[in-house]
């Protein structure tokens, strides 16, 4: 593929170059829309066309100074961080359980645990909107809740709508499949004799986990955590249904912005997000390399 052998005829050459051209066009289609908006975010006028009349940072200034965006950034970070912690912890532990070979019902369990990734977001969001409005009541603990209200422990029904904890658990539930998938993938080919060796050398299970298992699954954990983080950071449909104005996240705020009147501030935010995803992508790539290296060592 890299160099054409000398025997390839005209037809073969034509095909070779036109194929490359087609692929180039497709890759161009993939990347250009994202790149096009970056310069436009520095436009001095609120238009979305080239050539730009001048360059300015005013839209970035707007993004940094407008308290609406400030709140959105703060909310997004809080929600994503906590959702990631929950998802990564639960997902890693579950993946360790699932990695046991020939566990009965394993594929069914896996299918269930991964389904949050597959269920259309609107369905998840609407179901959550119903349930999160009164989770205690729906779970059959309405009486306990009433008693707690009577005793003055809580002033109202415990709800998960219009507050950050609701968004956090919802996003955590969405993020877990990614962690399960990535950690399970790291555990494929995991050498269980390492655990036995560690135990044989006198380590208790906790020490074994932190000293042997964890370093080996860490790349999977981190890449799962990155997926969980970006899932939460990028999620808008659930925020649309569960968040009130005070809980607007960045994507939710962008959605409103696009709906009402798309301003270049959105493009400034988008640019920041693109840079952010480049950073994420880079760290993921470095992780992958590290993982391959460690795999190579354990195989040797």
């Amino acid at each position: 593929m890299a160099k054409l052998p000398p025997y390839v005829g005209i037809g073969g050459k034509t095909w070779h170059y036109s194929f490359r051209f087609i692929c180039g066009a497709i890759l161009f289609f993939l990347i250009t829309p994202i790149l096009v908006i970056i310069p436009l975010s520095f436009n001095s006028e609120p238009y979305f066309t080239y050539p730009m009349p001048g360059v300015s940072m005013r839209w970035y200034e707007e993004f940094v100074t407008n308290p609406v965006w400030g709140t959105a950034v703060k909310n997004s970070i809080i929600v994503a961080v906590f959702a990631t912690i929950i998802a990564t912890t639960l997902g890693t532990v579950a993946a360790l359980g699932l990695s046991k070979s020939n566990l009965p019902g394993k594929s069914a369990l896996m299918g269930i645990l991964i389904s949050p990734m597959i269920v259309p977001l609107v369905i998840t969001a609407v179901g959550m909107k119903f349930f999160y409005s009164d989770p205690m009541g729906y779970l059959g603990f309405g009486w306990l809740q009433d008693m707690m209200i009577q005793w003055g422990w809580i002033s109202d029904k415990l709800r998960l709508t219009n507050n950050l904890p609701g968004l956090i658990v919802a996003h955590a539930a969405l993020g877990t499949p990614f962690v399960v998938i990535t950690v399970t993938a790291t555990l494929v080919g995991f050498d269980n004799s390492l655990i036995r060796a560690s135990a044989g050398l006198g380590a208790d299970p906790r020490r074994t986990f932190f000293k042997v298992t964890m370093p080996l699954v860490l790349p999977g954990m981190i890449s799962g955590a990155l997926f969980a983080f970006i899932t939460s950071f990028d999620e808008v449909v659930i925020a649309l249904f569960l968040a009130g104005k005070a809980e607007y996240t960045i994507p939710r705020q962008m959605f409103s912005g696009i709906r009402e009147q798309i301003s270049p501030t959105i493009l400034a935010v988008a640019t920041v997000l693109v840079i952010f995803s480049i950073l994420l992508l880079t760290s993921l790539e470095l992780l992958r390399r590290r993982n391959e290296r460690m795999r190579g060592m354990s195989a040797a």
Binding site: A94, L103, I123, G127, T176
Partner: peptide, 24 residues
């Protein structure tokens, strides 16, 4: 033990993900 490890996530998803969909 393996099932026990899966259990926390299972319960979490059951309450915060599957129950809402079931309710719907």
């Amino acid at each position: 033990r393996a099932y026990g490890l899966v259990l926390p996530l299972f319960i979490f998803s059951a309450i915060f993900f599957f129950f809402p969909i079931g309710l719907m």
